[in-house]
Simulated assay, not measured.
Amino acid sequence: MQPIRFTNVGSETQLNDILDTRVQEAIADPNAFICAFGDRWGPEEDTPDQYFDFTPGNGIHNIHMNQGNDPGHEQEDGVWQDGALFIYLPTQDQWMAVFLKFQSQASQTDDTTGHAL
């Protein structure tokens, strides 16, 4: 894992800079493949999506490590439920895998509970 520092509120972050180029390349290539792993939410039949305004609201979240949380969030810990993002660009024959965790999360976790060691 490589720490990505937060810059300023309202500014582009390094994470956005890293991902945006690849996502834009994937959008431009009809044969590209993007796969997001996380927790599904929705569909919410009567609630439009809060960001994109489509109905029904439906999507995916927790596309990050979901274990090793601090004590205030350890109820969200679990094993075998981490999220990730994969992007395949066939014109470049290149895969990009993105595994994220919050800096407050421990990398060493219990194999049965997902709690920080």
Rank of each mutant, 00 (worst) to 15 (best):
Q103F: 07
Q105G: 02
G57E: 04
E76Y: 13
N58R: 11
F52E: 13
G68S: 04
F102Y: 12
T21K: 11
Q24I: 01
V98C: 05
F6M: 12
T55V: 14
I27T: 03
M1C: 11
A28H: 03
R40Q: 15
I34C: 10
F37W: 05
I18P: 03
Q24S: 10
I4R: 00
T21S: 11
P3V: 01
E44K: 10
N58C: 12
T7S: 14
Q2I: 06
I27F: 04
G78S: 07
G42N: 03
E74R: 15
D70W: 05
H73P: 02
P3F: 04
D49L: 13
Q92A: 04
G114W: 00
F86Y: 09
A106M: 12
W80E: 13
C35D: 13
G114N: 03
W41E: 13
R22H: 11
P3R: 00
F33A: 08
E76H: 14
N69M: 07
P43F: 03
H115W: 06
P90N: 07
P56I: 04
T21P: 01
N66T: 08
P56R: 02
Q24K: 14
R22Q: 11
T13G: 14
L89P: 02
Q2W: 06
L19Y: 00
W80T: 06
D53R: 10
T55S: 15
P56T: 03
R5F: 05
G59H: 04
G42Q: 05
E25F: 00
T21N: 13
D20E: 14
Q108S: 09
E12H: 05
G42V: 03
L100R: 01
V79R: 01
R40K: 09
G72R: 02
W95M: 01
T109P: 02
E74P: 00
N8H: 08
E45N: 10
E76T: 07
T55F: 11
Q24N: 10
S104Y: 08
V23G: 05
Q50H: 13
D70E: 10
D77Y: 08
G57D: 06
D77T: 07
D49M: 10
R22P: 01
Q75S: 09
P71R: 06
Q92K: 01
D46N: 15
N16Q: 12
E45S: 11
T21D: 14
F52L: 11
G78Y: 00
Q75L: 09
P3C: 05
G78N: 03
N8C: 09
A116P: 06
E25S: 03
N31G: 13
E45T: 12
T47N: 15
D53M: 09
D17V: 01
Q105M: 07
N66R: 13
T55K: 15
D110H: 06
D70I: 12
L117N: 14
G83W: 00
F6S: 08
D20K: 15
G57H: 02
A116L: 08
D93N: 09
T13H: 08
N31R: 07
A116V: 11
P71T: 05
N69L: 04
P90L: 06
N58F: 12
T7N: 15
G68I: 03
F52K: 11
D82V: 02
V23R: 04
A106G: 06
T7E: 13
D111G: 12
T91F: 09
G10K: 01
E76A: 14
G114C: 00
